[in-house]
């Protein structure tokens, strides 16, 4: 299994935690770092965070489980956050959702069998002028059409293939 976080990053968080008065304030940063490297935050990621910052595992867990963008369950290599809030809804988000479900062959909340994509409903992404919108990883894609989605997915698949080769 892939490591949770490279040792140099763990060391850097450790050093920061002892240098500041309130090490808890690094919990979200460290959870995000683990997720960015490992894809999601397993139980061991919670324990690693607690150990690195010198805080209790429960203090990490109660933070980790609050945020919808911290994944405590395995996700695909790319997480698609599909906005279903008012501006996207009023400009066709339901059609966009049906298209994504069809081309990926999954329902909301599921991961493709090849482990490439997880499709999650999301609240407003702050791209209301470019509705309908979705976010893949940390990149927002707006003014979505079926064609545009197919194009974005193709590019993501190619990028994943390149990552796997590396």
């Amino acid at each position: 299994m892939k490591e949770l976080l490279p040792q140099n990053q763990i060391d850097s968080f450790k050093a920061k935690a002892v240098a500041i008065a309130h090490p808890h304030e690094l919990i979200v940063d460290l959870l995000r770092a683990i997720q960015s490297h490992h894809g999601w935050v397993p139980d061991d990621g919670v324990l690693l965070t607690a150990d690195t910052l010198g805080v209790l595992p429960i203090e990490v867990e109660e933070v980790a489980t609050f945020y919808d963008k911290i994944f405590r369950r395995a996700v695909g290599r790319r997480v698609i956050h599909l906005c279903d809030s008012i501006c996207c809804w009023s400009t066709g988000a339901e059609m966009i959702t049906e298209h994504l479900k069809k081309v990926l062959g999954i329902n909301l909340g599921e991961t493709t069998s090849d482990g490439q994509f997880t499709l999650l409903p999301s609240c407003c992404l702050g791209a209301c002028g470019d509705a309908p919108a979705m976010m893949i990883g940390l990149t927002t894609h707006g003014r979505l059409t079926a064609e545009k989605i197919n194009d974005v997915l193709q590019k993501e698949r190619a990028a994943i293939a390149a990552e796997v080769l590396k």
């Binding site: 690094l26 979200v28 203090e59 933070v63 911290i70």
Partner: peptide, 19 residues
Amino acid sequence: AGRYILGEETSLLNGLEGR
């Protein structure tokens, strides 16, 4: 890391503190 409630200022402060 998400959640609308963080825009409420005291929730935001807890978020900054890592609570």
